[in-house]
């Protein structure tokens, strides 16, 4: 898909989802404020899902980076590309994680009367936030040596897969959950008006993710190109 087609579709879908969240979906029964509160799920759920998907994307490129390093034919552009994609996915994951935490907290405040309940999913998402934060912290520690930074942050991303898998599958089972796990994972229970908005919303967030990835990777490449130009200029002066 071309860049302008992607942006056009994304713009159209987002407008539809925002309109649909308030005008197409009916107020859900059993939720606070006559079901108004439930409308946040059109934004909260995709954010929450993409906060984990982003991690998987980042890990995929981290594995690719190390695999390329281990190979015989090392191309610098391919190595840099996989590193930037991994880092960009990590940044987006961090962003979506923050958004999911905020929207979730607003919903919890309206629905359960308190903005923070120590629900297992709430606990999981703050730990996930911490994992993302420490990845970016590790990156900042190696500003002078991009190759080393790429290698070590890829290793961290892969090792931190273990805690994040535990966060998704084990931790919520260990702690008693009060989250409505069944309502959304079982399509039969979701009303048609909700599906009409929720599914396009997932598509919109997918496109948003792809577009932001592209933007971030190209800015990273520009920044690196400028750094290299400066280095060359310094070399030429000597």
């Amino acid at each position: 898909m071309g860049s302008s087609a992607l942006k056009g579709t994304l713009g159209f879908l987002m407008v539809y989802v925002i309109y649909g969240a308030f005008n197409i979906a009916h107020g859900a029964i059993g939720f606070a404020e006559k079901g108004i509160a439930a409308r946040i799920i059109f934004f909260h759920v995709p954010c929450a899902v993409y906060s984990s998907v982003a991690y998987m994307v980042a890990t995929w490129y981290a594995v690719k980076h190390l695999w390329l390093l281990g190979g015989t034919n090392k191309s610098n552009t391919a190595l840099e590309d996989s590193d930037y994609k991994s880092a960009a996915a990590m940044e987006l994951g961090f962003l979506f994680c923050i958004l999911a935490t905020i929207t979730g907290s607003i919903f919890a405040g309206v629905q359960w009367g308190s903005f923070w309940n120590w629900d297992p999913r709430e606990t999981s998402i703050v730990i996930m936030l911490l994992l993302y934060a420490s990845y970016h912290l590790l990156r900042t520690a190696f500003t002078t040596d991009p190759a080393k930074r790429a290698r070590l942050s890829a290793v961290y991303a892969i090792i931190a897969v273990i805690p994040s898998i535990y966060l998704i599958w084990v931790v919520p089972r260990v702690l008693h959950t009060m989250h409505p796990t069944t309502t959304l994972s079982n399509p039969a229970d979701t009303s048609l008006s909700y599906k009409l908005v929720l599914y396009p919303s997932f598509l919109a967030f997918t496109l948003l993710f792809i577009w932001l990835m592209q933007l971030r990777v190209s800015t990273m490449k520009l920044i690196e190109a400028r750094r290299k130009r400066r280095l060359h200029a310094m070399e030429a002066q000597r």
Binding site: I127, L130, S134, L137, P163, Y166, V170, V174, L175
Partner: peptide, 14 residues
Amino acid sequence: GAVGLPMLTVLLVL
């Protein structure tokens, strides 16, 4: 500490 503790949080829950 800053890089390690987030990874340990999960282990600590277990």
